[in-house]
Lab assay of single mutants.
Amino acid sequence: TYYTVKSGDTLNKIAAQYGVSVANLRSWSGISGDLIFVGQKLIVKKG
Score class of each variant (00 low, 15 high):
30 G>D: 10
21 S>W: 04
44 V>E: 01
37 F>E: 10
11 L>Q: 01
33 G>D: 11
23 A>R: 09
42 L>R: 00
11 L>I: 09
44 V>N: 02
8 G>I: 03
4 T>V: 15
13 K>M: 12
28 W>S: 05
42 L>Y: 01
20 V>E: 07
20 V>M: 08
33 G>T: 10
26 R>Y: 05
16 A>K: 12
13 K>E: 10
38 V>S: 07
20 V>W: 03
5 V>I: 06
7 S>G: 09
19 G>M: 08
39 G>M: 03
3 Y>H: 12
36 I>R: 00
31 I>V: 10
16 A>D: 11
25 L>G: 00
23 A>T: 10
6 K>C: 07
25 L>F: 03
34 D>E: 10
20 V>A: 05
44 V>D: 03
5 V>E: 01
11 L>D: 00
36 I>Y: 03
2 Y>D: 06
10 T>C: 06
35 L>E: 15
27 S>M: 14
42 L>F: 03
22 V>C: 08
39 G>W: 05
11 L>S: 01
12 N>R: 13
39 G>T: 03
37 F>S: 09
15 A>V: 02
42 L>E: 00
17 Q>T: 11
37 F>K: 09
5 V>W: 05
46 K>F: 14
2 Y>V: 13
42 L>C: 03
39 G>V: 04
30 G>P: 04
20 V>Y: 03
21 S>L: 07
47 G>H: 13
39 G>A: 03
23 A>M: 09
5 V>M: 02
46 K>P: 15
5 V>P: 01
33 G>N: 10
18 Y>I: 09
32 S>T: 14
45 K>S: 14
15 A>W: 04
19 G>N: 11
7 S>H: 14
33 G>W: 06
25 L>A: 00
15 A>N: 00
16 A>Y: 10
19 G>C: 10
40 Q>H: 03
46 K>M: 15
4 T>K: 08
44 V>L: 09
7 S>V: 15
42 L>G: 00
39 G>K: 02
38 V>H: 06
39 G>P: 00
3 Y>K: 01
7 S>T: 13
45 K>Y: 15
44 V>F: 06
2 Y>M: 10
8 G>L: 04
1 T>K: 11
13 K>R: 10
39 G>Q: 03
47 G>Y: 12
26 R>I: 13
26 R>F: 05
6 K>H: 07
18 Y>C: 09
27 S>T: 12
26 R>E: 06
34 D>L: 07
28 W>Q: 04
35 L>N: 14
41 K>M: 12
41 K>G: 06
27 S>D: 14
34 D>P: 07
7 S>F: 13
19 G>V: 05
35 L>M: 13
2 Y>R: 07
13 K>D: 12
29 S>K: 02
31 I>M: 09
11 L>M: 07
14 I>T: 00
23 A>Y: 08
31 I>Y: 05
39 G>I: 05
20 V>Q: 06
1 T>Y: 14
39 G>N: 06
37 F>I: 10
4 T>S: 07
9 D>C: 04
42 L>S: 00
24 N>D: 15
47 G>I: 14
10 T>M: 03
34 D>F: 09
2 Y>H: 09
46 K>E: 13
10 T>V: 04
42 L>N: 00
42 L>M: 07
11 L>W: 07
1 T>F: 15
46 K>S: 13
34 D>S: 09
10 T>D: 08
15 A>F: 02
43 I>Y: 10
8 G>E: 06
5 V>C: 06
21 S>T: 14
31 I>S: 03
20 V>H: 02
47 G>N: 13
25 L>P: 00
45 K>F: 14
2 Y>F: 12
28 W>A: 06
29 S>E: 02
35 L>S: 14
2 Y>T: 11
33 G>S: 11
43 I>Q: 10
43 I>M: 12
4 T>I: 15
18 Y>T: 07
46 K>T: 13
23 A>P: 08
37 F>A: 09
18 Y>W: 12
26 R>P: 01
24 N>L: 13
37 F>D: 07
26 R>G: 04
7 S>R: 11
21 S>N: 07
12 N>I: 15
13 K>Q: 11
18 Y>G: 02
40 Q>F: 06
19 G>W: 05
4 T>L: 10
11 L>Y: 04
27 S>R: 13
31 I>G: 02
28 W>H: 03
18 Y>F: 15
14 I>K: 00
44 V>P: 02
35 L>W: 11
13 K>G: 13
13 K>I: 10
25 L>R: 00
20 V>F: 04
18 Y>M: 10
21 S>H: 06
35 L>Y: 14
45 K>L: 12
41 K>P: 05
3 Y>A: 03
23 A>S: 11
22 V>H: 03
24 N>W: 08
46 K>D: 12
32 S>V: 15
6 K>R: 11
33 G>V: 07
45 K>H: 13
31 I>R: 00
20 V>C: 10
44 V>M: 07
32 S>H: 12
33 G>Q: 08
35 L>K: 13
4 T>Y: 14
8 G>N: 06
40 Q>V: 05
7 S>A: 15
6 K>G: 07
11 L>F: 06
17 Q>A: 13
6 K>V: 11
42 L>T: 01
26 R>K: 15
19 G>I: 04
8 G>Q: 05
41 K>D: 06
11 L>H: 02
28 W>Y: 06
35 L>C: 12
2 Y>E: 11
29 S>A: 08
27 S>A: 15
10 T>R: 03
21 S>R: 05
38 V>L: 08
44 V>Y: 04
15 A>P: 00
20 V>K: 01
30 G>S: 09
38 V>I: 11
14 I>C: 01
4 T>G: 03
28 W>N: 05
38 V>F: 05
1 T>W: 15
16 A>C: 12
20 V>P: 00
2 Y>Q: 09
22 V>M: 08
23 A>H: 11
24 N>R: 09
42 L>A: 01
41 K>E: 10
1 T>Q: 13
26 R>W: 05
18 Y>L: 14
21 S>K: 06
41 K>H: 10
40 Q>S: 05
36 I>G: 01
16 A>P: 01
38 V>G: 04
33 G>Y: 06
22 V>Q: 05
30 G>H: 09
31 I>L: 14
3 Y>S: 00
17 Q>H: 11
18 Y>N: 07
47 G>P: 15
4 T>R: 08
32 S>K: 12
38 V>W: 04
29 S>I: 05
12 N>G: 14
9 D>N: 02
29 S>R: 02
7 S>E: 15
17 Q>F: 13
4 T>P: 02
40 Q>I: 06
30 G>Q: 10
14 I>E: 00
22 V>T: 08
41 K>T: 12
29 S>H: 04
35 L>V: 14
13 K>S: 15
37 F>W: 11
22 V>F: 03
11 L>V: 06
38 V>C: 08
8 G>Y: 05
10 T>A: 04
12 N>D: 15
